[in-house]
Measured scan of single mutants.
Amino acid sequence: SFNTVDEWLEAIKMGQYKESFANAGFTSFDVVSQMMMEDILRVGVTLAGHQKKILNSIQVMRAQMN
């Protein structure tokens, strides 16, 4: 498990989005775990492969939080 959203993004090789997530207010796992595709688009993730990777990881995160 990760301590910060930045660490999580690095771990899934999506570190290039750290600033975008932070600027959009997605700075805690409570918020990130609620993200939908529209949120991912809003933070500027436009590549389908990256969207899928982030969404898949969020689903895993949700499962671990319950």
Rank of each mutant, 00 (worst) to 15 (best):
R62W: 09
F21H: 01
W8P: 01
M65D: 07
V5L: 04
M37F: 13
V60R: 08
V60L: 14
K53Q: 14
K53P: 03
L41W: 08
Q59A: 15
S20R: 13
M36D: 15
K53A: 15
T46W: 07
N23P: 02
A11D: 13
A63S: 13
A63M: 09
T27R: 10
T27A: 08
L55N: 05
I58V: 07
Q34F: 07
E38R: 09
K52P: 01
L9W: 03
H50N: 04
N3V: 10
V31T: 12
V43T: 06
L55V: 05
E19Q: 10
L47H: 15
T46L: 12
A22Y: 13
R42F: 11
A11T: 13
M61L: 15
Y17P: 01
D39C: 03
N3P: 09
I40H: 00
M37C: 09
D6K: 05
Q34V: 09
K18Y: 05
N66W: 03
S28N: 13
N23S: 10
E10R: 05
T46C: 08
L41D: 05
V43Y: 02
L47G: 07
Q59V: 09
N3E: 13
A48D: 15
S28D: 12
I54R: 00
F2A: 08
S20C: 08
I40L: 14
S57H: 14
M65I: 12
M36F: 08
V5M: 03
Q16G: 07
V43E: 00
S20A: 14
D39S: 03
Q16C: 08
N66C: 11
M65L: 11
G49Q: 11
Q16P: 04
V45D: 00
H50S: 04
G25F: 04
M37H: 12
L41F: 08
D30A: 12
D6I: 06
A24K: 08
S57C: 09
N23A: 14
E38G: 09
G15K: 05
A48V: 13
S1H: 13
Q59I: 12
V31A: 15
Q34G: 10
Q59W: 09
G15P: 08
A48Y: 12
S57G: 08
F26H: 04
I54Y: 01
L41P: 02
V32N: 00
S28Y: 05
G44S: 04
I58M: 02
S57I: 06
V5R: 00
I40R: 00
N56M: 14
S28E: 06
F2Q: 07
M14Q: 03
I40C: 05
N3Y: 12
V60C: 12
A22G: 06
A11Y: 14
M37G: 05
H50E: 06
S57P: 00
I54E: 00
A48R: 12
T4A: 07
W8S: 00
L9R: 00
M14S: 02
T4R: 05
M37S: 06
S1G: 13
Q59F: 10
E10G: 07
K52T: 13
T46F: 10
S57R: 05
E19H: 11
K13C: 11
K13D: 14
L55C: 07
F26I: 13
G49Y: 12
G49S: 15
G49A: 15
I54Q: 00
S28G: 08
S33Q: 08
T4F: 06
N66A: 14
A22N: 08
I12T: 04
K18P: 01
N23W: 07
M36E: 15
S20W: 05
F21C: 02
G25H: 05
R42M: 11
G15C: 05
M37K: 09
F26A: 06
V32A: 02
K53I: 15
S1E: 12
F21R: 00
R62L: 14
K52Y: 10
A24R: 06
I40Y: 03
E19L: 10
M36K: 15
A48W: 09
S33D: 04
S20V: 08
A24W: 08
V43G: 06
Q64C: 09
R42D: 07
L9V: 02
Q51R: 10
